[in-house]
Design a protein around this nucleic acid. Structure first.
Lengths: 153, 153
DNA sequence: TATTGTTATACTCTATAACTATA
DNA sequence: TATAGTTATAGAGTATAACAATA
């Protein structure tokens, strides 16, 4: 994707320059993943937002929680879930605790489709298998440190 | 995002298990990046596809090349470029070599907006600054190996 | 009063197919 | 004959605002 191609940055240290390259490589990887995701969703006749919803439904979720995960307005989730429901992939369930809330849950068919989607994009992409066992260990540890919650968050 | 949460895989080796965790961490990172991208695009009144087009226009590109990078049909690019052009962010330029081709290029205003977008999402996200210089070097080298073209591609 | 989910609206994205101009 | 870009069309995503039901 060459997202960084024309960024004229002036690194103040070598570490900063290396970090910039590492992040540029991440962006390249994001581009690959995005295309893989779009292609896989299309093969199952799912729009990207629908595929994203299925992936986030490992367990039942209130509508507003799904909206938050999809980074879109709640009003959109109504339509997305409507269409998934029309295809028999999800069902709405009234919450007994809070009668304002509806939980969205996968049907058996929805769970099967989600599994097939995960086979396609949940597994590591081409290139991953070239990494050594040592590489994988280092990578995992570095990503863990990067994603560790910074105490107050 | 917990994309891997309910994947019941049976790792045949420890390396495979570590690799699976590393990839799951990648997916978490993708989710963070996607949300950051959507929020940044919205702040500049750009739809995601428009923001993606701007980011890919570091240099002038034929319409069909842009379609390929955005992983969408050429007919969509016509509309996306129409709207960016109406806002004075890009311009179409006929190619002198092949008169079927139109190159899309940023205007000065488009270049400024692209720069501001890159300040927001082209720079490393929260968490990156917690990595040591050694981490960054290892990460860069591993990602390089992962993204290296496998001879015939 | 605040929150949850829905509806109405307007605009954009998306794929498909058909079309023109060019190669 | 194939390719580049456009147009027309239909269906879906998106944000905003207004609404009813519930907390």
């Amino acid at each position: 994707m060459r997202l960084m191609a024309s960024v004229t940055s002036v690194p103040t240290s070598q570490a900063e320059s290396i970090g910039a390259e590492a992040w540029a490589l991440f962006l390249t990887l994001f581009g690959h993943h995005r295309r893989r995701f779009l292609i896989a969703a299309g093969e199952f006749d799912l729009h990207p937002a629908q595929a994203g919803a299925l992936l986030n439904l490992a367990e039942p979720l209130p509508m507003h929680a799904l909206a938050s995960l999809l980074a879109c307005d709640s009003s959109n989730v109504t339509g997305i879930v409507d269409r998934l429901e029309a295809r028999g992939l999800v069902a709405r369930q009234l919450s007994p605790e809070d009668r304002r809330v509806k939980h969205v849950m996968l049907t058996p068919a929805g769970r099967r489709l989600r599994g097939r989607l995960l086979e396609r994009i949940g597994s590591p992409p081409e290139g991953f298998e070239r990494l050594s066992a040592e590489d994988l260990g280092q990578l995992r540890d570095i990503l863990r440190r990067m994603l560790a919650e910074p105490a107050g968050s």
